[in-house]
């Protein structure tokens, strides 16, 4: 299983020209479509999206509500399947992976930060942060705890490890969620409006955290945001409208 994750076959650049910092694509979307079929209507959430995310980039995605940003992120994060098109991770189409391999990819390569935190209420802060490591073979209990502490330290929450999510403020919860995404030391962090529920001060803190992560550890970050100012601080801004990329 290890080999598919470290495999980095170089591929010719995809169609969409982007202001790249380094030309090593980690995620490539080709002609991605997502159509939601309900009884009454058919919603085209993503309409033939072509997009390349390069290694070490910090990309922000903006667009009006309902234009398909979350859908796009879910598909990039392998949480959902597109209705059409090809996703390539490190140059390999994910359709070629088995369920187990996909789970391993989610576990080792990607860290997700959700708009509504999605912490597990029954677990303490520490146990929540340990979660990704629980599904990683060869990581023992002691190592799990150490890494979780380190991640919590990074987000400034090492004093709250024994708390439960319900005992935290919204900002603190989002920081726990970020620590959880960090704990597995993924190459890519996908953050869906990480500051959407927070006030500007708290939002600024989270933004700093992500910027540092990108600069110091070279983590690739894709962030959905409604905040122009935040978006401008990233290396690349992608605008979406009605399921299509407009810039």
């Amino acid at each position: 299983m290890e080999n598919i994750l470290t495999q980095t076959t170089a591929r010719p650049q995809a169609t969409a020209p982007a202001p790249v910092t380094s030309a090593q694509p980690v995620i490539q979307l080709r002609e991605i479509e997502k159509i939601y079929q309900t009884k009454t209507i058919e919603t085209v959430a993503l309409n033939r999206v072509n997009l390349t995310i390069n290694k070490g980039e910090f990309v922000s995605i903006m667009g009006p509500s309902g234009c398909g940003k979350s859908t796009l992120l879910s598909i990039m994060g392998l949480l959902d399947e597109p209705s059409g098109g090809v996703i390539e991770l490190d140059g390999r189409p994910v359709q070629a992976y088995s369920d187990r391999e996909l789970a391993a990819l989610r576990n080792q390569k990607i860290g997700f930060v959700f708009q509504s935190y999605h912490l597990i209420n029954d677990l303490s802060v520490l146990d929540n942060v340990e979660l990704p490591l629980l599904y990683r073979p060869g990581v023992g209990g002691k190592q799990r705890r150490e890494r979780a502490y380190a991640a919590l330290d990074k987000v400034g929450l090492s004093a709250r490890t024994g708390h439960f999510p319900s005992q935290l403020s919204g900002g603190q919860r989002q920081r726990v969620a970020i620590a959880r995404a960090l704990a597995g030391r993924p190459e890519i962090i996908l953050a869906d409006e990480p500051t959407g529920n927070l006030d500007s001060v708290m939002g600024e803190e989270i933004m700093e955290l992500l910027l540092n992560l990108n600069r110091q550890e070279g983590t690739t970050i894709v962030m959905v945001t409604h905040d122009e100012q935040q978006a401008r601080r990233t290396q690349r801004l992608i605008r979406f409208f009605d399921g299509s990329q407009v810039s």
């Binding site: 989610r106 860290g111 999605h118 912490l119 597990i120 979660l131």
Partner: peptide
């Protein structure tokens, strides 16, 4: 189901 979704997102297999 939230817990299940989160666990899947962070790499739990169906078997796990």
């Amino acid at each position: 189901s939230s817990e299940i979704g989160v666990r899947k997102a962070f790499g739990a297999t169906s078997g796990a």
